[in-house]
Each structure stands twice: as structure tokens, then as C-alpha cells.
């Protein structure tokens, strides 16, 4: 896990999630903008997964439990996918809110993952 990349993810997931929640509550159906924000969050998670697999080879080992880290990461990767499918199947304002909730949940999980990798056990 690369720390500055995690902060970049948070810088996208949090405003993106808040934006989706606000637009959803304002009555907007899922659009390219809100779907795109969720897709970007997902894409960055995949990159983080690759980074997490590669990082120990470069001497960047997790300070905490790897098992816990990957449980979070796999869960986080699943969330935007489920929310995105929901938004495709049911095009209502609440689907937009759900996109936002998924991004914000991912943000919380990323924060925990960062603690596990960089802060714990040091």
C-alpha cells in the first residue's frame, strides 16, 4: 500500500461520495458524472490492490495484519460494483444516494487500511 496514493483515493472518494449523496437527495437520477465518480473510485481500488501485492517485494511491508488488510480491500472493491449495478438496474434518485454511500464507505475502509498498513504496530 502506497500512502500518498491512499490520500489521493480519499481526496476523490470523499468529495465524490458527498456529491452523489447531495445530487441524489436533490432528486437526480444516476448520471455519467455520478457513475463516473464511482467508477473512478473502483479503478483506483484496483490499482491499490496491485500496489499492495507488489509493495512487499519492494520492501514496503504492512505493519499490521495482512489478513485484515485484504478483508477490507476485497470488501471495498465489491461495494462500488454492487452500487453501480444497482444504479444501472434501478434508475432512481436513491440509486444516486446509494452510489454516494458506497464511495463514503470505501473511504472509511481506506482509512482503516492505511492504519493497518502504515500506523499499526510501529
Amino acid at each position: 500500500m502506497i500512502e500518498w496514493f491512499t490520500w489521493l483515493q480519499l481526496a476523490i472518494a470523499v468529495p465524490g461520495g458527498v456529491l452523489c449523496v447531495i445530487l441524489g437527495l436533490a432528486g437526480r437520477k444516476p448520471t455519467d458524472l455520478t457513475m463516473g465518480a464511482t467508477a473512478l473510485v473502483e479503478l483506483l481500488l484496483i490499482v491499490q490492490l496491485a500496489a499492495a501485492i507488489a509493495a512487499p517485494l519492494a520492501g514496503n511491508d504492512a505493519t499490521g495484519s495482512l489478513l485484515e488488510f485484504y478483508t477490507y480491500l476485497v470488501s471495498a472493491i465489491a461495494l462500488p460494483v454492487v452500487a453501480g449495478f444497482w444504479a444501472l438496474v434501478e434508475r432512481s434518485r436513491w440509486s444516486t444516494v446509494i452510489l454516494g454511500v458506497s464511495s463514503l464507505s470505501v473511504a472509511v475502509m481506506l482509512y482503516r487500511m492505511n492504519q493497518i498498513w502504515n500506523v499499526q504496530g510501529s
Binding site: 489478513l67 485484515e68 478483508t71 444497482w86 458506497s102
Partner: peptide, 28 residues
């Protein structure tokens, strides 16, 4: 019913979080 769906999603996320955490605790 839309708000109800949001409730379902939040429940689902909490279920996922609790399951993941207890899986880690029990496994390790």
C-alpha cells in the same frame, strides 16, 4: 420505499463490515 432501500444498503454495508471483521478475528 426508496428510503427503505437506502436503509437496506446501509444494513448490507454494516453486515459486510461485521462479517469481515469477525472473519479476521476468528481466523487470526
Amino acid at each position: 420505499s426508496g428510503i427503505g432501500r437506502l436503509l437496506i444498503v446501509v444494513y448490507g454495508v454494516l453486515a459486510l463490515a461485521a462479517t469481515g471483521r469477525s472473519f479476521v478475528q476468528i481466523a487470526s
